[in-house]
Computed example of a mutant assay.
Amino acid sequence: TRQIPLVEYTLNRLYGPRALKQQLRFARYARRAAIEIVHTYGFHANVFATAVARLAGVRVIVTSVQDMGIHLTPAKGRVQRLMCRWTDRIVANADAVRQRLIADGYDPARITVIRSGVDVARFTNKTAGRGIRQALGLPPGSPLVAVLSRVDRIKGIEYFLEAMATMADRFKDVHFLIVGDGDVAYQKELESYGTRLGLDGRVVFTGARTDVPEILSEVTVSVLPSLSEGLSTAILESMAAGVPVVATRVGGNAEAVEDGVTGLLVAPRDAAALGRAVCLLLENADLRHRLGRAGRQRAADRFSLERMVRETERLYEDLMVSSKSEARHGR
């Protein structure tokens, strides 16, 4: 295996003397290593590296934006737009993200959509998670309804708890998983809210996990109640695992989930609709299996890791050709 060097740039803030020192260190490394392409992901990397890479003489700079910008303050939004002027191409991971960028004043000609991809092969072993239930204290054979996401207010997990509370008496053997970590204060609020909703003993917060394929092999329905989303990796992984998905109709979710074909879509902040959709799947095994199979096929056809890598490589090659052509013509 080829050994690729890893260089870390530690920051506690994006501005100030420490940040400038790290940026100068990055610029020196880029020159010394003759780096020809820099690809940044997310607000912090975009602000840290794009202008510095250009000043360091990097030929091609690509910036990825993978969200709907809801977490950005107006000031951060202006900073990101300014930084993106130094880039050769902005990569959005969904058409919804591209449309958001255009609405925010970005040049449509400089935006390319390369949808996120997952390693579908990792999610094909349906017997891999047999020890998961015991590890998490879950009874064997009970249906599991899971949210796989960061524990973050933008994920709308309180609406998931409300929805599950409406059906808990109807499906007494169902248990609920929240897989991920994040905002500790928010998680404590959710735990208290679950208790008030009567879900004690039915909800498990697993924390961060590295065995998501194994967990998904045991999940009956995967739910994403987000209030905003770019293109959710959790949705794509659930589809790759053949698990039927219920998701909110926000951002790029509808580009992955075709309502009634590869999953079910509901309005955000609508716990009642979310609960009805999950109930429908719990009651109808044929529908679950049909949506799960169609979701797996869609993930393989449109959201594979191989396809994402291939399109990214092609973009790099095209931009390098353009850069060299411009250099020959003195532009």
Rank of each mutant, 00 (worst) to 15 (best):
E8N: 13
G16W: 01
R18Y: 00
L20I: 05
K21T: 07
R25G: 15
R25A: 14
A30P: 01
R32S: 13
I37A: 04
Y41L: 09
H44I: 02
I61Y: 06
T63D: 11
T63M: 10
M68G: 01
G69P: 01
H71D: 15
T87E: 03
R89G: 01
Q99T: 08
I102E: 14
I102L: 09
P108K: 12
P108D: 11
V113K: 06
T127V: 09
R133E: 04
Q134A: 10
G137L: 00
A146P: 06
Y159P: 03
A165T: 05
A168S: 12
F171S: 04
V179D: 07
D183K: 11
L190W: 04
Y193T: 06
G198D: 10
G198C: 09
E214R: 13
E218N: 06
V221I: 07
V223M: 07
L224W: 05
S228T: 13
S232I: 02
T233I: 14
I235R: 08
I235S: 12
A241L: 08
V246P: 02
T248M: 00
V257F: 01
E258C: 09
T262L: 01
D270E: 14
L280P: 01
N284F: 02
A285N: 05
R288M: 04
R290A: 15
G292H: 10
R302P: 00
R302G: 03
S304I: 03
L305D: 00
R310G: 06
E313C: 12
E317R: 14
D318Q: 15
